[in-house]
């Protein structure tokens, strides 16, 4: 198939085949090569570059990041935005997924919910600017119904970005949760119901333990989406202040200051913080529940 050392004799070929390497296995090579060239190499290069600052010693970029409040506060800003949104999305998604699972025409609802994901954050931000703006339909309806006495100031601040993450993030979280919830064998719930377990007990004793691994993964994937928010933090947020998230700091270092080593350092810190959250969530999951989970997957 490709450049394998097959011509050095049947002996080597047989040995390779015994380990699972033959022509078909080699089909994986172009793909692996592409991922190494376009992901692993740039990532390692960025890591190396982050230790080659424009001025100062090897760690100068990291020292700069953690000593400049304008830079290190971006971690806090990002987490204050992305963690509550992710948790709220998950808290909303679970009960709704449990309802929708019993629904006959799921597809209509899931199709509507797929819309904001496919349209993306830029379009949602663009729509929000007017819809939630002082003259938009949302503010008008709230005033007309007497719920609010003056137009809410949602966009250009924390809540603008929060809402934008909710609008694009909730459908994502929900659809993932739904795919886990529908994967649970319905007979398990029926058995529990037959034995007299109340809905609350059925949820706590049957569903929750089975769902936890899926929910942990859903949390991580949703968190990654919310965490790397860039366009909406700029368009519907307050990018100089309350929504100056870490990706804005990295982006500005790269494109406005042309300081690629610093930009790479910020990008690496960004990746590291995300990794810490993901590890904590997955770790907490295994603390909460240990035991077989795969058995119930239909």
């Amino acid at each position: 198939m490709s450049e394998t050392p097959l011509d050095t004799g049947p002996n080597l070929r047989q040995r390779l085949r015994a380990r699972g390497f033959d022509g078909v296995t080699m089909l994986v090579l172009p793909c692996v090569f592409a991922v190494i060239a376009l992901f692993v190499y740039p990532f390692l290069y960025g890591l190396w570059l982050s230790f080659q600052p424009k001025t100062g010693g090897h760690l100068a970029n990291y020292v700069k990041f953690f000593s400049d409040p304008f830079l290190y506060r971006t971690i806090q800003t990002t987490l204050i935005l992305s963690l509550p949104v992710t948790i709220l999305n998950l808290l909303l998604a679970v009960p709704i997924a449990f309802r929708v699972r019993l629904m006959k025409h799921q597809r209509i609802l899931t199709t509507i919910l797929v819309l904001p994901i496919t349209l993306g954050t830029v379009l949602v931000a663009e729509g929000m600017l007017f819809y939630f703006g002082p003259q938009g339909w949302f503010s008008r309806t709230m005033l007309a119904l007497g719920i609010l006495s003056q137009p809410p100031s949602i966009v250009h601040g924390y809540w603008g970005v929060f809402l934008s993450l909710l609008i694009t993030g909730f459908p994502f979280t929900f659809l993932l949760t739904l795919s886990y919830v529908t994967g649970i064998e319905p007979a398990l719930e029926q058995a529990a119901a037959t034995l007299g377990a109340s809905p609350t007990a059925r949820f706590r004793e049957i569903f929750l333990p089975l769902l936890l691994p899926g929910l942990a993964i859903t949390f991580c994937l949703s968190f990654v989406q919310a965490y790397s928010v860039l366009p909406s933090a700029i368009l519907v947020g307050d990018p100089a202040n309350t929504t100056r998230v870490i990706s804005i700091a990295a982006y500005q270092a790269a494109t406005e200051e042309y300081d690629y080593p610093l930009a790479s350092a910020i990008a690496m810190i960004m990746g590291a913080v995300q990794l810490v959250v993901v590890v904590l969530v997955l770790g907490a999951r295994s603390l909460l529940y240990r035991g077989p989970v795969a058995a119930a997957k239909g």
Partner: peptide, 12 residues
Amino acid sequence: VPSVTYGIPLAT
């Protein structure tokens, strides 16, 4: 990995 994290070194 968040796209911005690898996007910046990749762009470089």
